[in-house]
Design a protein around this nucleic acid. Sequence first.
RNA 1: GCCGAGAUGACCGAGUGGCUAGGUGCGUGGCUGCAGACCAUGAUACUUGGGUUCAAAUCCCAAUCUCGGCCCCA
Length: 459
Amino acid sequence: MIKIYNTMTRKKEELNPLHENRIKLFVCGPTVYDNSHIGHARTYISFDVIVRYLKYRGYSVFYLQNITDIDDKIIKRASQLDVEPVELARKFEKRYLEDMQALGVENVNFYARATEHLPEIITQIETLLLEGFAYQTETGVYFDESKFPEFGKLSRRNIEDLNVHRINQDSTKKNPGDFALWKKRDEKPFWKSPWGNGRPGWHIEDTAITEEYLGPQYDIHGGGLDLIFPHHEAEIAQMESVSGKKPMVRYWMHTGFLNVKGEKMSKSLGNFITIRDLLQDHDPEVFRFLVLSTHYRSPIDFSESALEQSKNSLERIYKLIETVNGIIESDISDLNQKDKEHNNKVRDTRNRFLEAMDNDFNTPDALSIIFDFIRDINRSIDHRNISKNSLNDVRSFLMEFGGIFGLKLTNKICIDDKTNDLLEVIVEVRGKLREKKEWELSDLIRSKLGDLDIILEDK
RNA sequence: GCCGAGAUGACCGAGUGGCUAGGUGCGUGGCUGCAGACCAUGAUACUUGGGUUCAAAUCCCAAUCUCGGCCCCA
C-alpha cells in the first residue's frame, strides 16, 4: 500500500485514487520567460520518478502539466528584448521541453498552455461572478476572499493574517487578500472578455485547465513548496467555489527547495544555475542521482562536491552492471551455484525496495537497499559462488530499479568500430608488455588513455 | 510580526522507543607488479539542558542555532 504525505493534513495517508487504479495528476509547470533552472529540474525529476513508480505499481497515470505562457514577467521580458510575448514564451517553452528531455523527464502526458484555454478561463470566472464569489471593479475581476472562509486551509493561515503586509495594493479591491481573476488591460497582449479586454490572473489558468482535463476533483496536485501560498490556496478557493465539490484534490504533494550554498537560488543573489549550465559539464544522470539521494520533501544543497559524491556513488552501480555483463558474456565456466539463495536475495531486496518506495517515495532509503544488494552480489562474485543464471536475475532486477529511477544502467561506451579495433590493438600490445614485465611502458599507456577518459582496469 | 521546515559521524543522507541504514571521502588489511575495481575492517554520530520509560536519535518540555514562506518563484 502506497503512502503519500499530504500537505493538506500534514500526514502520510494511504493512496486511494478516486477511480480504482487510475490516477489523475497535475503538477504546476513553469512560466516560460527564461531558461529553466536546476530547482525546476529537481521538482520535475522528483515527479518523474513518482510517476514511474506509480506506473510500476500498476496504476494508470494521467500526468498533466500547464505551461504559463502569458504573464507579467513574460510581457516585461519581451518588451525589454523587443519581441512579441508569445514568441518569447514559445522559445522558452521549447527550451524547457528540451531540458526535460535531456534530464530524462518523460512522463507528462499533456502540456496545456494557458493561452489556449481562454474560453475555459472565462467560463470559470463567469461562474464565480454568477455565484457571488467574485466581483468586478474598474481594474479587473477579483475573487472575494470573504466568501470562502476556508481560505488558508492548505498553508494553515487565517484570513486576518493575510490581510496585512500587502504591497502594491489595488485600491479597488474589497479586501487586501482578494486576488485577480481577470486583469483589465488594453495594451497587448489582451483577449476579449465579457469584462473588456485584458488577460487572466495568475491562478485561474490552472483550475481552468485541470477542470477541463481532470474534472473538478482529482487525485494528486503537485508543485514546489513555494507554491503552497498563495497559488495553491487560490486554486482551491476557485475550484471548490466553482464546482461546490470538496476537496478539489485528494493529495497535495510539495517538493523541497534546491539551495545553492545554503541559500535559495534567486536572480537577485546571482546564484542562479540553469539546467543548460549544469548539463554543459555534467551527466544528467548524476544530477538525477543527486536529486534522488535526498527525499523529495527535503531541501537539497547543491554543490560541485555533492555532484562529485553522486557521481562516485552512481559509478558503483554501473561497475556492478559492467562486471555482471562481463561474466555473463564471457565463456568462463560457470561459477559455483547457490541459485536458491540468490533468488531469495533478489526477491527480498525487491520487497524491501518496494516497501521503501511505498513509504512516501523514500528514494534515499530505497537506494540504501540497492547498495546493500550490490555489496552482497559483489561479495558473491568475489567468492565465485554465483551462477550466470543468478547474475541474469541480478541484472534484470537492477534494470527494473533503473526503470523506476530513470537511470539507463547500460554501458555508455559508444564508439565506432574503427576506434574499438584500435583500442583492442593498444590493449593487446600492452598485454604483451605486461607479460614481459615492462611496467613503466604499460603504466604509461594506461595513464595516457586515462587522460582521454578511457579507464583501463586490469583483472 | 505571522506561518513553516530542520539540527545525525570528515561530507551527503535514511531512521517515530530496544536489533551499530546506506553512499562518498579518509585510514588499515586482503587481492594485485603497481593503480583501479572488489572484499574485509576502522574512526569521540545523533545541537544543548531537563523530563517520561526497564529502554530515547526517535516521545514530552525548555533553550540555542540554521533555513524558508508571507510581492513573484519549482
